[in-house]
């Protein structure tokens, strides 16, 4: 990175450290923090969407849809999340390949499951074996995002379901008295009002989502945990210009501090948001604000 880094063996102290911390691998390490942030940025809205779908399904007047919505939240919440992560990554991959197989190779004779193998035709492979490396990585990342969205969607569904029920029933009755249809009352009365009730639950969910991001490592994405293990391990002078002992403890201390800081900042931001949203609301929080101002 710097011009004086050409011969690291002559360097010492801070200059050595400055060279060490800017090697190519370390830059990948820093980039993996961006991966985590991107994951959060994509997953949070997707999970919210899944959650909204789940909550609406659980309230549906059509019985099978209602069972689906309730079953979705109940099962995901009753089983360890990590089991779901491990399950969905393979299951989704196989489901996609199976669908493509059915479409692209309709005249394929052999069964797909042969003993312990899962075999689809070449054209149905995802990503194609000829695809460049970045396609493989992006595909892996997208599978991870979808998995996160499914699992956290169930949590969000539960929060939103509670929030929908918390909207005073009289509001809905009034809407119907004014001649709104079921659909109109839902979109115009319930959905705008439910957010205040949902926010505490959703902010809790956000914290949990932050703390779930290291699980990306288990899904095979090269995330911060992967790089911390990789970079922290003992390196032999034969393979690197920057030999050092087992530094994984220091790398993980750094990750620990990163997460603590991230949680703290989120806490402060969410608290401000909550203050803003409760302003003028007919809840105890809003009432307390009004009294404090008066």
């Amino acid at each position: 990175m710097f011009s004086y880094c050409t011969d690291p063996s002559t360097l010492e102290g801070l200059t050595w450290l400055s060279c060490y911390l800017t090697t190519g691998k370390h830059l990948s390490f820093y980039a993996s923090f961006v991966t985590v942030l991107v994951l959060l940025a994509i997953t949070a809205p997707t999970a919210l969407l899944f959650g909204f779908g789940g909550a609406t399904a659980a309230r549906s007047r059509i019985a099978p849809l209602r069972w689906f919505g309730k079953g979705y939240t109940a099962i995901v919440r009753g089983v360890p999340d990590i089991a779901f992560f491990l399950f969905f990554v393979i299951a989704l991959d196989q489901a996609f390949e199976y669908l493509r197989h059915k479409v692209k190779c309709p005249d394929w004779e052999e069964p797909i499951r042969q003993g312990n193998d899962f075999i689809v035709c070449q054209a149905a492979k995802l990503p194609l074996s000829t695809a460049p490396q970045w396609v493989h990585e992006t595909y892996g990342f997208l599978l991870a995002v979808l998995t996160f969205a499914i699992v956290f969607g169930a949590f969000a569904a539960n929060v939103l379901y509670g929030a929908m029920n918390a909207v005073p029933h009289a509001q809905m009755e009034t809407a119907e008295a004014y001649g709104m249809s079921h659909r109109q009352a839902f979109w115009r009365i319930m959905v705008p009002q439910m957010w205040v009730y949902a926010l505490p639950g959703l902010s809790n969910l956000w914290m949990v989502l932050i703390k779930a991001t290291p699980l990306l490592f288990l899904l095979g994405v090269e995330d911060i945990v992967y790089w911390a293990r990789e970079l922290g391990g003992t390196v032999n002078p034969r393979f690197t210009d920057y030999p050092h002992g087992d530094w994984r403890l220091y790398y993980f201390t750094f990750l620990l501090i990163f997460y603590l800081g991230f949680t703290r900042v989120s806490e402060i931001v969410l608290e401000r948001l909550m203050k803003k949203l409760t302003h003028g609301q007919a809840t105890t929080g809003g009432e307390a604000q009004r009294k404090a101002a008066a």
Binding site: K211, L215, F217, V225, R248, L249, F252, L255, L256, Y259
Partner: peptide, 18 residues
């Protein structure tokens, strides 16, 4: 409560190794 359990496991393991 502010850090992931997953990271805590890693951290503790390397601390114990040390």
């Amino acid at each position: 409560r502010g850090s992931p359990l997953f990271i805590q496991f890693f951290f503790a393991y390397f601390l114990f190794l040390r």
